[in-house]
Amino acid sequence: MARPAGHASFAMRLGHYGLWAVTLLILFFLILPILIIVPLSFSAGTFLTFPLPGLSLRWYQEFFSSGPWQLALRNSLIVASATTVLATVLGTLAALGMTRARLPAPTLLMGLIVSPMVVPLVIVAVGVYFAYAPFGLTGSLLGLTLAHTVLAVPFVVITVSATLQGFDPNQIRAGASLGAPPATVFFRIVLPLILPGVISGALFAFVTSFDEVVVALFLTGPAERTLPRQMFNGIRENISPIIAAAASMLILLSVLLLTVLELLRRRNERLRGIKA
């Protein structure tokens, strides 16, 4: 050893713990807003400060009995569900197509399909606002669904393509050689195998639509107001614990989503582990 062992190990230990402290601090920064907003939603008072004057469910009660919030929740559920169906079907078909054969200009094709993820939302919003207006699609849940599907489709294509990379096309041939028609092969062999990817994609699509606010700001009037849109107004005008209650429910949704994704990931790993 060229240097004194005690000194080196002390410095290294210091670095080790220092790095741990920094990491935990940054992770704390990441989780802080969630740690703060959830308890505040159970506050008995009307101000968003600690310590809580008492615990109550009054803000949840208010959320579920308020007309505008109920309308917003209903609209969000309708749009997000319709978006999920549309995006999942279109995205899954496209992902199947892209792995089936080499299409011309694959990079450009993929670039186009994922570009809604990086194009600034306000540009999509202004574009669809101008383009949908002549067809009466502004101020309609249909218009919002059509735009949200554009934003959600890349997630479906990416997750389904990822599942298809581990997919052995010989299984299709095996099915076909045993006499199954293409539809049977698809529903009995392909779909069950890529299902985890399809479900993950569908969940991403749902959340993308459920959280989206910029396009909603341009395409919705008071009657089509969605949950994020309603929250946006609330934050701007008067930030009350009812926002914290709405936010907490959205956080719960994210927790559920993450749990399902994690279960799917484990199932996938287990299946592949058996196969290997």
């Binding site: 807003p33 934050i235 936010a247 959205l250 994210s254 927790v255």
Partner: peptide, 16 residues
Amino acid sequence: LPFWTSLLVRTAAWVV
């Protein structure tokens, strides 16, 4: 978890 939490929720939390 924060990554999949609504952008609006996180923005609201930072205002709070």
